[in-house]
Design a protein around this nucleic acid. Sequence first.
DNA 1: AACAAGATTAACT
DNA 2: GTTAATCTTGTTA
Length: 223
Amino acid sequence: MLYRMDSSDGDQEMRISERLPDRDFYMDGDVVGISKRLLGMKIVSNTPDGICSGIITETEAYAGETDRASHAFGGRLTQRTEVMYREGGIAYVYLCYGLHSLLNVVTGPAGLPHAVLLRGILPLEGIGIMGGRVKRSINVHKDGLGPGKLTRLLGVGKSHNGTDLKCNGLLWIEKSGLSITESMITSGPRIGIDYAGEDAGLPYRFLLDVVQVEREIKKAGLM
DNA sequence: AACAAGATTAACT
DNA sequence: GTTAATCTTGTTA
């Protein structure tokens, strides 16, 4: 499948498949490392409304059975967590507080229930479609921040649970081509997991400096 | 079968 | 800063 990048790229046209991270990218057992490497990549959704995308700007690592904040803590293998135990490179979507769909990237080999929660995007393509979903115009600096807000903008819901993110189907992740350095990343404790006891303080939340990212986006001609 | 809690958000005071 | 909205899941009985 071919897909034309926006006009500022002139006649540059590239196969999406060349931008899809390979299977090995998701198989890494280091979920913290993947959480950082996902920053600056592009998440894309394809729904009947059209294509929407955003640059991933905030992530959190959930380190499987040994992490008190993880749904799989203690080896809990249930209908809900079963997706986390599959091979990396698929989506884990669940309903939080009965209201919000939260989107995770499952990572690691089968049997290792690691996942990365996507907490923030900088909307890129399909901003008009996103506006329709929230019934007002989009503020790209605010409306993509928050795990529930991100899924609403992208039109992601429980039906996306288990979706393969390694292929361009309904929901996938692409390399953006942006050059992200360690100096653009800050880390801190995860949000909303006070119940996790001693693991609540782990610095497993990662944020991209939006100012620097936008500079990169302009440099790369994505905006 | 019943129940408490939750990886949140928006709209309040 | 506080609170309502809303429902699936995991746990306990």
